[in-house]
Write a protein that binds this DNA or RNA. Sequence first.
DNA 1: TATGGGACTTGCTTGGAGTTTC
DNA 2: GAAACTCCAAGCAAGTCCCATA
Length: 892
Amino acid sequence: MTVEAFAKTNLMEDIDDDDDVPLVFKRSSTASKQSQSNSSSQKQDGRSGRQVSDVRSPNGQSSSAHKVKIASASKASPAVSPLTNPKASPFTSPKASPSSVRTSPAPNSRPSSSAGNQAKNVNQQSISAPKESKQSVEPKSEPNDESEDSEDDKPLSARLPSGLSKSSSIHANKMVGTSTSVRKARPPKKEDSDDEVPLASRFQMKSNAGASTSKFSNSEEVKPKIRQNGLPSTTVLSKRPPGEVKSAAQASVKKPKLSDTSTPVSTKQASLKTEKKAEEEEDDDDDVPISLRMKKPGASACKVSSGKKTIKVVSPSMKKTKKKLKKTKYSKSSRVQPSSGDGQKWTTLEHSGVIFPPPYNPHGVKMLYKGKPVDLTPEQEEVATMYAVMLDTDYVSKQQFKENFMNDWRKILGKNHVIQNLEGCDFTPIYEWHQREKEKKKQMSTEEKKALREEKLKQEEKYMWAIVDGVKEKVGNFRVEPPGLFRGRGEHPKMGKLKRRIRPNDITINIGKGATIPECPIPGQRWKEVRHDNTVTWLAFWNDPINPKEFKYVFLAASSSLKGQSDKEKYEKARRLKDYIEGIRSAYTKDFTSKDPVKRQIAVATYLIDKLALRAGNEKDDDEADTVGCCTLKVENVEPVPPNILKFDFLGKDSIRYQNEVAVYEPVFKAIQQFRSGKKDGDDLFDKLDTSKLNAHLKELMPGLTAKVFRTYNASFTLEQQVKFINGRQEGEISIGLENHLFSVGTRQVAIICNHQRSVSKSHSVQISRLNEKIDELKALLEEFKVDLARAKKGKPPVKGADGKMKRNLTPEALQKKIDQTNAKIENIERQIDTKEELKTVALGTSKINYLDPRITVAWCKRHEVPIEKMFNKSLLAKFAWAMDVEPSFTF
DNA sequence: TATGGGACTTGCTTGGAGTTTC
DNA sequence: GAAACTCCAAGCAAGTCCCATA
């Protein structure tokens, strides 16, 4: 079926060599103009090609952006951060030294001494003797209540209000306060302990059993000896046996020593020396692939050497790994699991390759050129159709998109084709045909739709699964991307270019040595290459037709054990940061005023990443959208406003605008001013810094630490704080109904911190109008009831209704009840409107999938006997299967 | 030390299925 | 029964970060 397509369709084979298309997007020095214009557009309207910046809340503020006001002291805030209260020491535990906040220097007092001294005071003992250029930090000695309660341990988010009130929700930073009085509003301190109480007897995997275990046994057709993974928990059969991939929760919670992350925990009381030793070990550990580190020591059924013998790896990457691992302990250590070798991700791997999109089926609808129908070959028509179906998107209004499209299409049309420019083209007939087709599909009966689905499933079934070390695992994206027009985000210089059709000879397959190589589905063609590289997890890849330097991979699904291990490791690392954070903050605070400009920049960058959850900000090529992260911030992106406000305005990942105004600690403010001095708008703010330098520095502070770990830490820590706060407020009243509250508050807070945005749905305003209409109707009704009530009290009958009909005679009590009910309805709808407005630009899902440690949620569910299914949907349950065994007392 | 290849993770949009409302 | 709404998962773009090599 799909297969013959390739024999027939040569479409767009030579399109990818067209990088000579003029690139408008330039960066940095050569691009300062571009940059300026770009930034000026940012400043004016934040337009990024997305709706985001156009969205405004009713009060006229851009609700899509991370807009922050430096709030007045009157706004109550349960916590104060150094950002929010620059007068206060950023790292002084209010509990340990409550007066320090009040007595700390005023904003204009000398900053250096305060910064340095405070850092010293607080963390003197936990920092190793600073070397000239390197500082190492040891985990805080005891993660006890004292220190956990400290503001210092909390990310900015955690210091923001709980979000329980409406005003504290969407623009969390509005709550930023400078008053010390707000401190009183902090969550009760001892709430932590409440969470710590193990209620094991009660939940014994109550939800888990239902979700993942008990039903497995009933599950369907698994071939003999093949265990199945990656299914939603309600259908999953079996997990890997304990000897293979240990449940992550087991590994982390029950047997922490097996994990590389256990070191900081076990050495919390240790001396610096011990710690250093531990770090060395961890350094080594860090060189070892996650999968290897996850493996349980001592399980020696299949050691490294045997792994090497059984599988001859041909990829260069494997060679590299081997070379590298010779230096590591693990290459010869017994800390290797069965089926894992040095860098080895699997021992046996079977799968069926990839499925190709169906061939193009010409529709024969003629587009118009200068008003006349045009004959097109199927290849030409296919590309025309790609454009036509996008007529109702914003892309076709973008010059770059149109230019790129025309350049590529022209190559298929040929020099002498009647179509010479896009202006003369009218794609409407094709667009309308497409709409009709969509409508037809929509109008199909349920049975027809079902039949189609089943047919598709039948065709795809064999591609959906891989067998990894004997376990049936779901494959993620087994479908090869179909040809189309590239939909780059923001002002991507390549938007509109043709993504040509991918054929078997573009694709490299990775499969176990002894496994059957998937048959190439197109007669006469073959795979580009077949590898047997067990150091990687991909099953196939091809070069991205838009950016041939880059690759498109086929991986296992998120629910697979391999992904689960990696996920768990990510959260463990973030969790470990909690033990180091105090020292890290002291270290960078000290460096705010360092004489070494590199150190100063690293310190300030780390501060921003820590406090604002900024991304690292790798350098980008000219042929990518001009977005920035921390290290690539431009002078124009950060504006210091005396006495201590920094105004951020830039396009981040996916060209999403980040707008924020924060009060910062004075040395930071001064440092930023200094970094900007003598530079132009488009110059790099951190000119002595890039992500590798920054990450190299971070690794000196904590093994394995990189910039992105702070985001995970911030997010998960924030959620946990929210959970604790809710628990504290609702002591004894936790009910299943609260889970929505928990998540709407917790995840919303995190989404705001991480700047996860979405475009406003097309129907948003209609929905709001409808709700407002309902309120109006209810209010009218309310007035009638009030009149009737007054009359009833005087013994008079009710007035006629709006429809002219007589109403029932009701008692005053009954009328009062109706009034109360109507009022409640109105309030309810008003709440709905508020929530819709607040969340219209906030994307909640992203943090739930990527940043919030699922064990926080699982543990909370266990503590409160809430079924986990209430919190996670089917795919999240499958993705987080590794987290289900966590102890109820788990804390992040 | 800079650069670029390579292998992932992160994140927004979209389309469709299921559910609710009228 | 249709329209409206919500939720979910697929799709794929766009990041991060590691490592080898020049």
